[in-house]
């Protein structure tokens, strides 16, 4: 293969890849573009919706939406629930991940416990939501952030267990043994040696858990009433008089912008995270 042919092929591949990338990026772009249009133009702008070329943009929808407290409440609730559930999942899940990596369990064996954790992700939420609804009402934690945090923590915990378990397995055990020879307790070895060395994996798991908790609509729409989060806030853009796409677009952007940034930050770990530790990215 000569050099020219190689670079020609590279160009062709690049163009194809770029085309596909643009197609995948387009919906996000379109939504952003929508948020800058006046209502009348929602369905009339042609081309790819570039501001100043295809239409005259306005920030009206944004200022309007952000000037009401509901937007801040949704943003605050979503952040609070996602952050606290993630933290809680780490506190409870991390030791379990460590246990699965370092100790041998016989009944049931380690791998079955791991798979059992994973199976929580498989569970259809529709099967769990009715009992949650009834129980939460009985316990008086219906429509509370606390109740929501419990639910989210439950369903994101498999991520931290499975992802970090893999990292712990890859750590040389000698480091912990050395610490223990120096007089550290088991717990000390875990906290002072294993955890600090796994920070990148823990961070990756956190980002993924945060996003899942942030994006959830199904549980929130059932278990929350006055306390609403961003997806519910987005749904609120639909009224008895139809869908207000211009406001929905703004709300959508508010909701997706944080996960998108996190996604870019966590790029390196997404593969491992979303395959639950089975594939190393």
């Amino acid at each position: 293969m000569n050099r020219n042919q190689g670079s020609l092929l590279t160009s062709i591949y690049t163009i194809i890849a770029l085309g596909i990338t643009m197609i995948f990026f387009f919906p996000l772009w379109w939504s952003f573009s929508n948020s800058l249009r006046i209502p009348k133009e929602t369905f009339t702008v042609t081309g790819v919706g570039i501001p100043f070329i295809n239409f005259t943009p306005t920030l009206g929808n944004w200022t309007h939406q952000l000037s009401f407290p509901e937007a801040h409440i949704a943003l605050y609730n979503s952040s609070f629930i996602a952050v606290v559930s993630t933290a809680l999942a780490i506190i409870v899940g991390l030791p379990a991940a460590y246990a699965l990596a370092r100790f041998r369990f016989r009944f049931p064996p380690n791998k079955d416990i791991t798979i059992w954790f994973i199976s929580q992700r498989v569970l259809p939420p529709a099967a769990a939501v009715v009992p949650f609804f009834v129980l939460w009402n009985m316990l008086g934690i219906y429509d509370t952030k606390f109740g929501m945090i419990i639910v989210q923590t439950t369903f994101i915990m498999p991520f931290v267990v499975v992802i970090v378990r893999q990292t712990f397995l890859d750590l040389p055990i000698e480091l912990e043994e050395a610490a223990m020879v120096d007089g550290a307790t088991h717990i000390g070895a875990f906290l002072k040696v294993a955890v600090p060395l796994s920070v990148p994996a823990i961070a990756a798991a956190s980002l993924i858990m945060f996003t899942f908790a942030w994006n959830d609509y199904f549980f929130v729409s059932v278990l929350m009433m006055k306390n609403f989060t961003l997806p519910i806030y987005i749904a609120g853009g639909v009224d008895s008089r139809g869908v207000q796409f211009w406001f929905i677009a703004v709300r959508t952007m508010i909701a997706v912008i944080l996960p998108l940034i996190l996604c870019l930050l966590a790029q390196r770990y997404i593969v491992r995270g979303l395959t639950l530790g089975a594939v190393k990215g």
């Binding site: 890849a17 990338t21 994006n215 998108l260 996604c263 870019l264 979303l274």
Partner: peptide, 22 residues
Amino acid sequence: MRSLMILPIFATPFAIGFMFFT
């Protein structure tokens, strides 16, 4: 391009429905 490609994964699914409606 890889970075752009993976953006959809983390977008809020409920919001995506509206996005595609337009």
